[in-house]
Design a protein around this nucleic acid. Sequence first.
DNA 1: GCCGTAATCTTTATCGCTAACAAGAGGCCA
DNA 2: TGGCCTCTTGTTAGCGATAAAGATTACGGC
Lengths: 343, 343
Amino acid sequence: MPLTSPPPKRRTLTLRDVSEASGVSEMTVSRVLRNRGEVSAATRARVLQAAKALGYVPNRIAGGLASQRVNLVGVIIPSLSNMVFPEVLRGISDELEDTGLQPVVGVTNYLPEREDRVIYEMLSWRPSGLIVAGIEHSDAARAMLANAGVPVVEIMDVDGTPVDSMVGISHLRAGREMAKAILAAGYRRIAFLGTQMPNDHRARKRMQGFEAALAEAGLELADREFYSGGSALLKGREMTEAVLKRSPDLDFIYYSNDMIGGGGLLWCLERGIDVPGQLGLAGFNGVELLDGLPCRLATMDACRIEIGRGAAEIVAGKAGDAPGITIELTPRLDLGDTVRKTA
Amino acid sequence: MPLTSPPPKRRTLTLRDVSEASGVSEMTVSRVLRNRGEVSAATRARVLQAAKALGYVPNRIAGGLASQRVNLVGVIIPSLSNMVFPEVLRGISDELEDTGLQPVVGVTNYLPEREDRVIYEMLSWRPSGLIVAGIEHSDAARAMLANAGVPVVEIMDVDGTPVDSMVGISHLRAGREMAKAILAAGYRRIAFLGTQMPNDHRARKRMQGFEAALAEAGLELADREFYSGGSALLKGREMTEAVLKRSPDLDFIYYSNDMIGGGGLLWCLERGIDVPGQLGLAGFNGVELLDGLPCRLATMDACRIEIGRGAAEIVAGKAGDAPGITIELTPRLDLGDTVRKTA
DNA sequence: GCCGTAATCTTTATCGCTAACAAGAGGCCA
DNA sequence: TGGCCTCTTGTTAGCGATAAAGATTACGGC
């Protein structure tokens, strides 16, 4: 009668299994697998071989509890649909790459109550740090962040007071600068097209800064329009058409982001509208997509990668142990082909 | 001399603190916070109040270790820059929303060795399930997945054998169907423009299926061109220009994705090329962006949201306890305005 | 041959929480 | 009144790893 091998016990492997297989203590196995402490080359090799043969995967849940250290960094962003955030993420993971830290992403959909929940969830994993988009938070959220006991970096925006550290640009100033450039180019009947989202504070601040600069020049917005949902490019077309129908004498449209700006630009080009002579256009963000359009939309880049890198550096402790650091980056204005050069 | 309050001990709070503050055992606090077991309304209220007052955040590291359960689902995707993946993610998190499970994202950048590492990292957290994009993996990765001891769902592609479950579409077939539709419309001198990435197996399979269908009709690709990196929309323009210069008599271009297809379309429209009369165009994915272009590019949607939902259902156990399920979805062909209607 | 120091490896005691079982408090019925 | 439930709450014993400190060689030097 052939001996059948016993059914493979699906018990998950532990350090003990590796320890028994290699004939050393669990502690030694642990040291080998973490590259910590002195272990002879021979033992190390034996342990590694046993671990590989068994297919052992360490249990970080247990490890984290024992060491009181977890190599995770929570990253909390409002959305993944807006390419801005994946790019910030890229900056973060690039920078974290060689620190042993690992980003974990949470998405809030621009909902404050959801942000509260995500922060709570993140903290329950006792991460080594937290990176949160935006500086507007509920009182509860702010309290959690303040008591987290680990570095907290609020990113993208610097128009306000951070809980701990902060890396970003001033959107108030960004809007203001764009307005100045537009005015300097001689445009006067200016409209703003943006998003409906009341919780997109950065877009709101850009518009505020924009309007403030207009006001200083004795002007106000000639028209405005807001959208929500749907394809941004398409909405840009539709809104541009709608607003030009309503206010045919506009000479400039400032879009709250490049996607709707790109849609507007395409629409204008199709109609044979003279851009930037008859009508000037500008967006915000400096998205890669714009490179593929027939002509370059004026924009301002939001320093996304740099923001990610900066935040990651702070969390990783590369920035020293200063308790609360603020880094304000300066967005670069690019007038492209959609703002005329002289007044 | 005024008594100064003692320095706030930054020791992190534990169940014991809440237990002392509310005068019940740790176990009871645990029960209240997890909504498990019978606890009187009065006690519950007292505990919740104490927890909130202290700002207690449970430690899931300890909880997970004790209960041997972790409410995380690992999601492993090649990239966040391609909107396809965030959309799959959306399907996953929508579906996971009310299950208590939480997705954790890992990105591989299309690198197999990085995929191995990410899978290893994920498993070290002992998640409740794993969702991995693609069905091509290293032997090591396949072994880890097979031994994970939790549901594993490979997504996006069904042209192959899964480790456990699988949800996706057949890219071979997708390429084939598109080729048939193009041939049926009477096009004969057909080019393929795609990505350089050797590890984008799905794009590769689409091209294979496409070529196979051409071969059956006694044809082969009249030209082809590949790119890597940069703005896809821009690359689409450049490649289209390059390939048409080289092969001016082409009557169709099949792009491996909608972004380069969109770039190509914009370029053709600018040049006044008669689309779809003189030249037909088609892409793949059905991205939202296309809605904003001047005319609708032919495409095939990749069922991204449905794939995400399906995978999440399996991981959440909503699909029953079948050991290995395969779900093949059928992409919808949309000829848009860039394929002529009759042969 | 004995002792000291360094290099390796082992032992012991948590980490913070939860499963499983135990125990006290009332209430109901005979 | 006593026994038996039911409803709540408490006790005990880990989960799988690591920190810290102890034990065991290894090896020279005198």
